[in-house]
């Protein structure tokens, strides 16, 4: 088990290395940081000094090594625009994005899985047809449109929910949470629905398709032939067998949710990493963009590891092969 985790982390190294190379190349070659940082008036001596300070006179690999060394320590330099350490900016923004993303993922799972099971079991019922119809809407409407429609109805017309921001937050150490205040929770509702709706319908359709598949198998027929209760057959034998693909997709989607929170954060002016990134893009604030890229890559690596660990827990057939690959 431990060996498995370690081996997975080693496998993740090339990925992280490649991403850091890209992010460094962006850092070093897109735009001219010296010009941006010096502003309008400077002497040639000042320029040379800054180049030396930034290490830009060093060969590529020396620069890259420095960059990696700093990145591992969480140092990504200063934001050009805000003149503050990028790591501070990201840490400040990360709780907002993570809380939003995990709430959206939680909603998607907590609603999508039962709906998928229901529509798989009762294919013909009118409720199933209803679910499938609204899921079509969820799949086909673009995220920003859903966000704007929700704002229009619940914030503008009904005036019951806020249309932007995070509401009041409480600081726990460096983490700020919106879960502990009424306004924080209210502010979370519309953005998390917007962000999670697509994933919810995706999970629902996936669970439904997998349920239909699994319900046709011999082992389900045999479970019925043994007289097990419907609950044991449906939510034990059948649902458990749909989990492997659901875990895969959910893991991928969680990554996608965090990455694409950008759109939702923009629509709702949500003070997260996505909004930070968008502002960085419009200001050519390269250090933030580079750091964001690394952050997202790291999140994907972590999510993939968790997905693999969940497989390990769910499917005994994979335990042998995973343990084997770890040795």
């Amino acid at each position: 088990m431990f060996a498995f985790i370690v081996s997975r982390l080693f496998q993740a190294l090339p990925v992280m290395f490649t991403v850091s190379l890209i992010s460094f190349a962006m850092f070093a070659y897109v735009g001219d940081p010296v010009a941006i940082m010096l502003g309008q008036d400077y002497t040639e001596a000042q320029r040379q000094a800054l180049i030396r300070d930034l290490g830009l006179d060093q060969p590529f690999f020396v620069q890259f090594f420095e960059y990696l060394k700093n990145a591992v320590q969480g140092e990504f330099g200063l934001s050009y625009r805000l003149a503050r350490p990028v790591s501070d900016l990201i840490l400040e923004r990360a709780p907002a994005t993570l809380e939003l993303s995990f709430t959206a993922a939680f909603l998607a799972l907590a609603i999508g899985v039962p709906m998928g099971v229901y529509t798989g079991l009762y294919r013909e019922s009118w409720l199933s047809r209803f679910f499938l119809t609204i899921s079509l809407i969820g799949v086909s409407l673009p995220t920003f449109l859903i966000g704007i429609l929700l704002i229009l109805v619940f914030a503008v017309m009904l005036g019951v929910l806020p249309s932007f921001g995070r509401g009041d937050t409480v600081a726990i150490g460096w983490w700020t949470t919106g879960f502990l205040t009424a306004s924080g929770l209210k502010a979370l509702i519309l953005p998390s629905i917007t962000l999670g709706l697509f994933q919810m319908t995706l999970i629902m359709r996936l669970v439904r398709a997998e349920m239909l598949e699994v319900l046709r198998t011999d082992y389900i027929k045999f479970a019925r032939a043994r007289g097990l209760s419907n609950r044991a057959v449906h939510f034990g034998h059948a649902l458990k067998n749909t989990l492997v693909p659901v875990i895969t997709i959910t893991g991928l989607q969680l990554g996608a949710i965090i990455a694409f929170a950008i759109v939702t954060e923009t629509v709702f002016q949500w003070p997260g990493m996505g909004l930070l990134f968008i502002q960085a893009v419009s200001n050519a604030d390269i250090p933030i963009m580079a750091a964001y890229l690394m952050m997202i890559a790291l999140l994907f690596v972590i999510i993939n590891l968790v997905v693999d660990l969940l497989y390990y827990l769910v499917d005994p057939r994979l335990r042998g092969s995973l343990a084997g690959s770890a040795r």
Binding site: D218, G227, N241
Partner: peptide, 23 residues
Amino acid sequence: RHVRGKQIGAIFQDPLTTLNPLY
């Protein structure tokens, strides 16, 4: 449901597919 298993048992053809792989 109480007849199945309790009064009438069943054995299927292919033991490779009859058992739930996850239990």
